[in-house]
């Protein structure tokens, strides 16, 4: 039986900041985006299609940075979560 991404993220420890550290700069660009790379390359499935827009589930972000440089339009404003927030590895 294969494990779903939601179950994988459930293994991790997060200290969630209400405010998202990830932001789409211009939502209109996403509507015209053909590659939609963020939906596929994000290892935590943070970006999900919701109607004609893309929703961000920043709570499960693994902080790898892939969406920031992988977005063909560089349309994602990417900051580290506030100090001490975000994922905290137990084993690493």
């Amino acid at each position: 039986m294969t494990m779903k991404i939601e179950d994988k993220l459930f293994l991790d420890r997060f200290k969630v900041d209400e405010e998202s550290h990830l932001k789409i700069i211009d939502g209109e660009k996403c509507k015209k985006c053909e590659s939609q790379a963020c939906l596929f390359l994000c290892p935590a499935y943070v970006y999900r299609p919701e109607g004609d827009r893309i929703a961000i589930n920043h709570e499960g972000c693994l902080e790898c940075g892939s969406c920031r440089i992988g977005c063909p339009d560089l349309n994602i404003e990417w900051k580290f979560p506030k100090g001490g927030y975000g994922i905290s590895h137990k084993f690493g």
Partner: peptide
């Protein structure tokens, strides 16, 4: 038993 999932470059 999987105990952690991480991602890195």
């Amino acid at each position: 038993k999987p105990i952690e999932y991480t991602a890195h470059w």
